[in-house]
Computed example of a mutant assay.
Amino acid sequence: MDRRRSHGRRTADGEAAGCDRDRGDLAGARTAWLPAHLEYERLGAAHDAFGDADGEINGTDAGLPDGVHDKDFVGFHRVEYGLWHGRSAGALKVPATALAKAVTALRDSWAQTRMNPAQLGLRAHEILENAVQFELTGRTDYGSGSNLATARANLDGTREVLSRLRPLLATRYPELPSLEGQLDRAQDTLDGFRRGGAWTPLDRLSRTRREDVDAVLGDLVERLASVATLFDPRRTV
């Protein structure tokens, strides 16, 4: 992954959202919020290497005493909550500025960050496992209704990890063609919920469609558990 380029795009998108907010154009800020957030979500393979920055950029209100009103609720989801719950541009200035600062700090420090390649198999599994746990349950929806878009970005992140592992998978994982077919099926399923730049909110899916999404991503998580096991470092005495 060219993470430096991805961080640059995300920063530019974040700055665009900030400019809209500063002009009082909250509709424009809402439009700019989703592309910026999805850029971050596509970097799922690297999130473990971000340390505390991940919480500052993409944390939730889980475990915070005052929930969405807690002073420690920050990042994309804090801005999302404000944008979709009638907060003024002035009220959003502090959290939006903090988000831009956190993203810029991560971008500037990334050249010195090292990832453990032995963890890639595990990350391929965890990215979509988290998508099923948090996105398909709506636990990370703070008003934008973009959980399905986020799950689609997570799928992109998983594909990126697998592309790095493919030379080894091709010789060690006979189920690779079936896995790739299921990835295509999941992509087609999720893309079916996008109309232009708008995504269907999770709570507007019919029960049948909700079950379809759960089934296709749940199956992928099970398949990717085998990939994680395959690349689990083995220690010998």
Rank of each mutant, 00 (worst) to 15 (best):
V132G: 01
Q119G: 10
H125E: 11
Q133S: 10
R123P: 11
P117L: 12
N116F: 03
A131C: 09
W110K: 04
L122F: 08
A131Q: 08
H125F: 15
R114L: 12
N130E: 14
R123F: 14
W110S: 01
L128W: 06
E126V: 06
L120P: 09
L136Q: 02
P117D: 11
A124V: 09
R123T: 10
A131M: 12
L136D: 03
E135C: 06
A111N: 00
N116S: 10
G121R: 04
Q112W: 04
S109E: 05
N116P: 02
M115Q: 04
T137M: 05
E129G: 04
T137N: 11
V132R: 02
L128T: 06
T137E: 11
A118V: 12
E135A: 05
A111Q: 08
A111I: 03
H125Y: 15
A124Y: 12
S109K: 03
S109I: 03
Q119M: 15
N116Y: 07
E126I: 04
R114M: 12
S109L: 01
Q112T: 02
E135G: 02
T137P: 09
T137F: 03
I127E: 08
A111T: 01
D108M: 00
A118E: 15
A118F: 12
D108P: 04
P117G: 12
N130M: 14
W110A: 00
L120S: 07
L122D: 00
Q133Y: 06
P117M: 11
P117F: 14
N130F: 13
L122W: 08
Q112N: 06
R123N: 11
H125I: 11
A111P: 01
A124K: 11
R114D: 13
E126M: 13
G121K: 08
A118S: 15
A118P: 11
Q112Y: 05
S109G: 03
A111L: 05
Q119V: 12
E129K: 13
A118D: 15
Q112M: 08
E135V: 04
Q112L: 03
Q133C: 01
L136G: 01
A124G: 07
V132C: 03
N130L: 15
R114Q: 15
H125T: 02
R114N: 13
